[in-house]
Design a protein around this nucleic acid. Sequence first.
DNA 1: TTGAAGAACATACGTTGGTATAGGCGGATG
DNA 2: CATCCGCCTATACCAACGTATGTTCTTCAA
Lengths: 222, 222
Amino acid sequence: MTSSRTPIERDTPPICIIDDDEELCLSLLNLFRSVGLKANYWTSTQAFLKADASCDPKCLILDVRLPDSSGLDFQDELERMGRDIPIIFITGHGDIPMTVRAMKAGAVEFLTKPVREEDLLSAVRAALARSKATEHEAERFASVRSHYASLTSREREVLKYVAAGMMNKQIASRLGLSEITVKVHRRNMMTKMKASSLADLVRMADSVLAAPDNGPSSGVES
Amino acid sequence: MTSSRTPIERDTPPICIIDDDEELCLSLLNLFRSVGLKANYWTSTQAFLKADASCDPKCLILDVRLPDSSGLDFQDELERMGRDIPIIFITGHGDIPMTVRAMKAGAVEFLTKPVREEDLLSAVRAALARSKATEHEAERFASVRSHYASLTSREREVLKYVAAGMMNKQIASRLGLSEITVKVHRRNMMTKMKASSLADLVRMADSVLAAPDNGPSSGVES
DNA sequence: TTGAAGAACATACGTTGGTATAGGCGGATG
DNA sequence: CATCCGCCTATACCAACGTATGTTCTTCAA
């Protein structure tokens, strides 16, 4: 819609290939180009990690056996880093335990060499779809989280009880405050959370308070 | 707590084995008995289906190759039937595509013969945990669904708009009603839904209205 | 026919929530 | 030290919500 001077293929989603078989990489690049998909490749996970931030990968095509580390270990590593990238595995010497591990860890597909083009392309399409779905979700979540981060500890408590369905009166007695104070905190909280309604707030609260990595217990100071 | 005359091991979760190798079945039965888990076995999916309702399976141990149908096909069949039972596959002649298919369809584990006892037991424990978690979820959902089913079409509309965060006034104008009428419907709806608060209602609404198989359009009778 | 149930509307009153305005207290920061 | 900010409180008013009670109309079934 906004026809500014942005580089040409900007919204073509980047597919990242990591495989030490450079010949294979090049042929995959050709394959993707032929169907209008933009891809890059690296021959080691280390090389990829250096460019990770800048290339914004939406789909990873990963060899199980790699020079520096196992593709499966790398999958775990990305998980620990909080990077949720859909992964398609390709292997020449795979076995069933490897496959189980990869799929349990959320891989989109696990293909064996020689890879059939149609299989790979449909896997890529699935991966990109998943990436897109996750992205929207993640953006909304990040926005809510940043609003939540701007709350004072009192406002967080009020949010918690409001989301639990308690009345101002009840919240006040629970916190040992007057009702009017609760109203003030509640109002400020609603504004900071940019909640358009109570229903809206409840949904935000559920997504924020469900996350274990930043529960309300971490926000206790004083 | 209620010490009535119910059969002895009532809360031991039933593990169901389907494998045409009867010898294996018997040895697995022994294994499970040795760790205090109750299990049954069948040598075909058809035989299992006849007893399905009565045995209330929490975990299925399924051979991929079966006399009447493929274990993988049976997995799909159960899915179509709406039966969500955690499945552990066991196979003597498995390959990677089979594994991928099974795991994609939600299998807990995919093991190869000969099966190591510790692997199977930890898989069973994972399956039972998942079953338990799903069960609670499903019960809550079923309860909400039954309450929702008791609503009149007007009450469902009001529920929809209330969950969207609209005020009575807005809902009234949207539905071409007076505000008082909306209040009446809203009150009846809250009572029927057994919602203890608006926050509570929003959560129920989200779980009911999110399900595609019974959207608000299907519930029109009168 | 009678009755039950859904739908709609109204008046009235009480409770709860939201807003405005105004002030006091304590810690942090310039 | 002065200032800002978080926190707490208060009075007062209005809007929104909940409840009670009563009436009208239609439909559907015992």
